[in-house]
């Protein structure tokens, strides 16, 4: 080795962790802190922030200033936030419903085939998300890959209007993030001791109770990890709503982008970002806790 590692075990551990810690600190913690500070500063009308202290951005989350400067409750931003959460929860549920059986199927295959299947699951990651979103336009769009053959066969005579709607957003989210659900579940299913399943069957457990009482509790860590990944990424997704959904309804991420571009209200963008982080944090925390509890009971 070209250099000597520190001899003290603690120092050695820190030395090993340093690259990760520095990366996270420089590229995540510091930017987030900057945004947090920005959210308490007045907005510069042309973007950026002015010097000083202001809570205007946080007030704007809930209230609108009337002409006489009195505050009126304004639910418009809360509505957008609520919609984003609902969409993210739905995406998580759908990916779980599809991802679990897929992972289960893969785990049952012989080792060689398993490798191939896992490899197939990861293929979409090779391409940029944006490009994949545009690919969906080619598939779902008017005269696209779905409509064209149906026209040719005379099965439809009007556009199916697949693009630019909730269906397209949902498809985009599920398609983008399903590998992140399959892989962790697969990882925990792989460690599952199938003797336990066999034992349960031997003891005349029903199929459904084997799944419910043996399989799910044992691969709960994978389900939790997958759900958190999908939920967090769906909540912050930007591409599906604006490109596939047609941008007719804002999601939290579009709203944040809007504040940093057209609206030129960086403090409010910062406040929204903090709120998004908070939501993700709370969501993950409760999910882990509730699931841990269930694990305890089972």
């Amino acid at each position: 080795m070209a250099f000597n590692l520190p001899s003290n075990p603690l120092a050695r551990r820190w030395f090993g962790l340093a690259p990760a810690v520095i990366t996270i600190f420089a590229f995540m913690v510091i930017p987030i802190m900057i945004l947090a500070v920005f959210s308490f500063m007045p907005a510069d009308p042309y973007g950026g922030v002015d010097k000083g202290f202001s809570t205007e951005a946080w007030i704007q989350l809930f209230f609108e200033r009337d002409l006489d400067d009195s505050l009126i409750f304004e639910p418009v931003y809360l509505q957008i936030i609520f919609r984003s959460i609902v969409l993210a929860v739905l995406a998580t549920m759908i990916t779980l419903a599809i991802g679990f059986p897929v992972a289960w199927y893969i785990v049952q295959q012989p080792a060689k085939k398993r490798e191939l299947l896992l490899f197939l699951v990861t293929i979409p990651f090779w391409t940029n998300l944006l490009i994949r979103a545009y690919a969906w336009i080619l598939i779902l769009g008017k005269n696209g890959m779905i409509e064209k053959p149906l026209y040719a066969l005379g099965l439809i005579d009007d556009s199916l209007e697949l693009m630019y709607g909730n269906l397209a957003i949902g498809l985009g989210l599920v398609y983008s993030y399903i590998p992140l659900m399959i892989l962790p579940i697969y990882a925990s299913l792989e460690k599952l001791d199938f003797n336990l399943v066999e034992a349960a069957h031997d003891l005349y457990a029903k199929r459904s109770s084997v799944i419910r009482k043996i399989v799910i509790p044992l691969c709960l860590p994978g389900i939790i990890a997958g759900s958190i990944l999908v939920f967090v990424l769906s909540l912050g997704d930007f591409i599906s709503p604006s490109i596939l959904g047609g941008g007719k309804k804002m999601m939290l991420s579009n709203l944040i982008q809007f504040q940093f571009s057209s609206a030129r209200n960086w403090p409010f963008g910062g406040a929204l970002t903090m709120l998004l982080l908070l939501l993700v944090g709370i969501g993950s925390f409760f999910y882990v806790r509730v699931s841990k509890k269930r694990e305890g009971i089972a």
């Binding site: 009308p45 609108e64 418009v76 931003y77 509505q79 957008i80 941008g247 007719k248 309804k249 804002m250 579009n254 709203l255 809007f258 057209s262 609206a263 030129r264 209200n265």
Partner: peptide
Amino acid sequence: CSAKATKLYDRVWTKLLQ
């Protein structure tokens, strides 16, 4: 446009896409 007008424009736009 002035900051005041920009703010109004953005409010209109947010309401439009809310």
